[in-house]
Write a protein that binds this DNA or RNA. Structure first.
Lengths: 213, 213
DNA sequence: CAGAGTTTGTGAAAGCGTTCACAAACAAAC
DNA sequence: GTTTGTTTGTGAACGCTTTCACAAACTCTG
């Protein structure tokens, strides 16, 4: 199998989302052109992305929506339900916990941890917030596979070290900090401040040299 | 001025964050090597990134921390305070509202909007949640420059159209959907589900072909 | 069933971003 | 002041991703 880039995987997720909408609307066939225009890319890009994983289309017709949904879900590993733990029961943690699109794709939050004694013991939608101290044991007991880190930046590396030691190999990080993990552990960072600074740059730039962007 | 890529801007933000920490610790000089190892990139990359905007270093010595902080803040447009509106007073909106790193870099949330009548009128840290209907007027009155869209996906495009019509040219989008905007308007999307699916892909892949990643 | 019209899959070309490698510039030591 | 050691700035090479372009494969119509 050829090498697959990060951006490609991101686009596959986008295609999948669109395809599920199309399936909902009982559309049964879609062209690369249609998919491209709805996802903000080009038809050639769509075909290249898909061709990395097999040949799913029919020439002269396009792609079968239900089939492509199935294929993409398989490719992205979304056929199983993932067991997820949330570390940090602050506002970001709460937002994530309530995020619909999470559960819908099979990411089930099955544990919530925090250090704050006033938060420990609270019920979140039927799930009890647990003390940070017992984290390793709970991760093991519940077979957690993915952790979401939503703690302050200065605490993040420590948490991550513990998660890695406990066997977690996938981490979604919200702390605005560089994390070091051993090979074999995957970290994705969501950095809102970074995105805002990207906006700031683009807007300042337009004021300085109009029409440049 | 040469063309500057998205990834470069992202790295500049990271460098700035590190430099502010160094400044806090009264470090006054830093090498590209040091900056690189702390930000997870290479020394050559750091120098290339910075060289796009001028020559800030001293050969044989490195970069002056305070000077580079100033320069980066200028480059990223962070010398001014940006007036930001939050559209959508749900959980994600609440998380963002309380996000420290936002205000610290000069992004001031000066209006919050929602359609839900039970939310309108609530006080958020001294700021009253306003009805969606009066959005355009408030944006104008308060000179809002950047909007954060934290509404359900199906409502996002409509909100964005109104924002653009009202003169907003920078949008941070949390809705998991493709947004169409005219040229000159910058949209950055933060898509948590997408990142999770990236994790799912990487983890599934490792199970199928260990050591591949 | 033949012909006209679509749409895919994919090598090849082009475009970008990263890495390399080294001369130039400076600091520090003696 | 000279030498040794360090670090920057940058053209060139490299590698990866995207775009192009078109033959092959299929549909649909009459």
């Amino acid at each position: 199998m050829k090498k697959v880039s990060e951006p490609t995987i991101g686009r596959l997720s986008v295609y999948l989302r669109l395809l599920m909408e199309l399936a909902e609307a009982d559309v049964d066939t879609v062209s690369s052109e249609e998919l491209a225009s709805r996802s903000g890319t080009t038809a050639a890009q769509v075909r290249k992305d898909l061709s990395l994983f097999g040949t799913f289309g029919k020439r002269g017709l396009g792609y079968s929506v239900p089939e492509l949904v199935t294929r993409l879900r398989a490719i992205l590993g979304l056929e199983k339900a993932w067991r997820v733990a949330l570390v940090g029961a602050g506002r970001i943690g709460a937002a994530l916990f309530g995020y619909e699109n999470f559960r819908r794709q099979g990411f089930n939050i099955e544990a919530v941890f925090d250090t704050d004694p006033t938060k420990v013991g609270q019920r979140w939608n039927g799930l009890v917030v647990e003390a940070d101290a017992g984290m390793e044991r709970v991760l093991e007991e519940r077979g957690i596979e993915i952790a979401v880190v939503a703690v302050p930046a200065r605490a993040a590396q420590g948490v991550v070290d513990r998660l890695v030691a406990a066997g977690i190999r996938g981490i979604l990080n919200f702390a605005p900090t560089q994390l070091d993990v051993p090979a074999g552990v995957v970290v994705k960072t969501v950095d809102m401040a970074l995105e805002m600074e990207g906006l700031s740059y683009a807007l300042s730039r337009e004021e300085r040299e109009p029409g440049a962007a």
